[in-house]
């Protein structure tokens, strides 16, 4: 069953790659990258169960956290051009 789940994750990874390659806008690519990050989380979790080390689930959780934070940072940078942005009215 875990092998089937792994196959599904890998196929979705390939689809996310195609989406990231096609674009065309920046936000399409960002969405594809976020999807790819989520698939990495799932890959690590499923691998943990495949090789008999279910404690890798904790690892996958930490990946989910940094994936979220990194995506917020990327979106903020693409939108505003900087991270240290104190006045939200000054949208460029």
């Amino acid at each position: 069953m875990f092998a089937a789940a792994m196959a599904g994750v890998l196929v979705t990874m390939a689809l996310a790659l195609v989406a990231a390659a096609r674009g065309p806008s920046v936000f399409d690519r960002l969405l594809a990258i976020n999807l790819f990050g989520t698939k990495t989380v799932l890959l690590i979790a499923v691998t943990g169960f495949l090789v008999g080390r279910p404690e890798w689930l904790d690892l996958a959780l930490v990946y989910a956290l940094i994936n979220f934070v990194a995506m917020i940072a990327l979106l903020k940078f693409v939108r505003f051009g900087s991270l240290g942005h104190d006045d939200l009215d000054a949208e460029r």
């Binding site: 990231a20 390659a21 674009g23 990050g37 990327l74």
Partner: peptide
């Protein structure tokens, strides 16, 4: 280049 920088994340 923006797309290339983002793809390096993948």
């Amino acid at each position: 280049l923006l797309a290339a920088a983002l793809l390096l994340g993948i």
